[in-house]
Design a binder for these strands. Structure first.
Lengths: 227, 227
DNA sequence: CTAGAATTTAAACGAACGTTTGAATGAGGG
DNA sequence: CCCTCATTCAAACGTTCGTTTAAATTCTAG
């Protein structure tokens, strides 16, 4: 009845599959990564993925979930903390931005695996697979909802539609900055492999995001002051 | 010896393949789109792709090249025009941004095929396939080089590295905004299918990009004034 | 009209895919 | 000790992949 027989080995198998899969997904994409590549790199049997996860599709979601769930939880906590610190006052926009994106950048600059995952995540946003899209939507919906509300309280004069657009733009700039940084490499010589590339990018990205958020609204009903 | 025998039909076959492939690549991605799906949708024989293009890989590049080459040519021309209009003076940053991104947004809001292509292009930036990455690099290198130089002249106090970072961020925000707009849909109800979605996004995106470009530098050597 | 090149067609190729199977392996509890 | 059950393993499943082949067809040039 007890599940924990060869437990250490069984858990090890699972996590080795997840690790190998994540690295290969970043390098080649979901579709182009085969079960044989994954199990080969992980040093486990071909059938292990189907035994432990059921299918490749579930494995993909599980690779994402392993880091995305804690990341989004931290985003929630960061906003909680900011709201607690602000007391009665609405949280200042730049603190909201910081709560959301610092969580990501912490993960991206913490470990090699974290950086790898953030690359994968950025790429996954443009992934057409319905299964992946559906998972991302359900995972992000409550987080985006909370942050949208926070922005709405912080910027009562800005229409919610505008806030969502800017959130969308900020998310895009960050995703692309993290995941597509090797396209930048072609042009600048900056390589993501350098361990401090993420650290050097971080203040620049935050400054850029805040600048975009504070930009005057195009239509021009007065809401250009956001900090 | 003359190639133009069944020319109309032969050209038609080629372009029908390109059209069908583009639509399918957007919907399912490169890897998940099979030759049989493409030739089926195009209404041509399975062997037609290999006959006319040589391989699936070449077809992918050709689909991209068909619209990307004219797009980048237009970006060059737009910068030429801006520089001509500025005369001796350096071109103002917001005009450089406009030259680059208006070309993209024109394409994206012009026709359904143009919008489709811009979606594909944004997604392609995070494509791991070496063949695709290499093509994108060679296609973009001269354009980015020209724009980088223009920005350097316009913002002589800003280090070139900072300029490249911001260009990278702007490119990311736009790519993501165009190609990942259906992830926004989950949160806002805005659908890319609405013919005017791109038009409504355009001024908002341009405002956001300029705001990001004008944001103060994080390190803080004085170069926060850019327009 | 005819010779011949260009294109289309149906069929097949070997390879690789995700998944399934049933037997072997190994450890824990009665 | 042996039965049990979770896990591993090698092998094979049927399917689909991109590509190739060779004959049929279409069109043009002479």
């Amino acid at each position: 009845m007890d599940v924990r027989r060869t437990s250490l080995t069984a858990h090890e198998t699972r996590s080795r599959i997840l690790d190998a899969a994540q690295a290969l997904f970043v390098a080649h994409g979901f579709e182009a990564t085969s079960m044989r590549m994954i199990t080969g790199d992980a040093g486990v049997n071909l059938a292990a993925v189907n035994y432990h996860f059921g299918s490749k599709d579930v494995l993909v979601r599980e690779v994402l979930k392993r880091h995305l769930q804690p990341l989004n939880a931290q985003r929630m906590q960061a906003l909680d903390a900011a709201e607690a610190a602000a007391g009665e006052q609405p949280v200042k926009p730049h603190r909201i931005v910081d709560a959301f994106f610092s969580s990501s950048l912490d993960l991206a600059s913490g470990s090699a695996a974290g950086r790898e995952f953030m690359q994968l995540l950025g790429r996954t946003f443009t992934e057409p697979s319905p299964s992946v899209r559906e998972y991302l939507a359900t995972e992000y919906a409550p987080v985006i909802g909370r942050y949208r509300d926070a922005f709405c309280r912080a910027l009562p004069t800005v229409p919610v539609e505008e806030i969502l657009w800017r959130l969308h733009f900020m998310l895009g700039a960050m995703s692309y900055a993290v995941s597509g940084i090797d396209s930048l490499q072609v042009l600048t010589g900056v390589r993501i492999d350098e361990p401090d590339a993420m650290q050097r990018m971080r203040p620049r990205l935050m400054s850029f995001l805040l600048g975009g958020l504070r930009a005057p609204l195009p239509a021009g009903d007065g809401a250009d002051e956001t900090t």
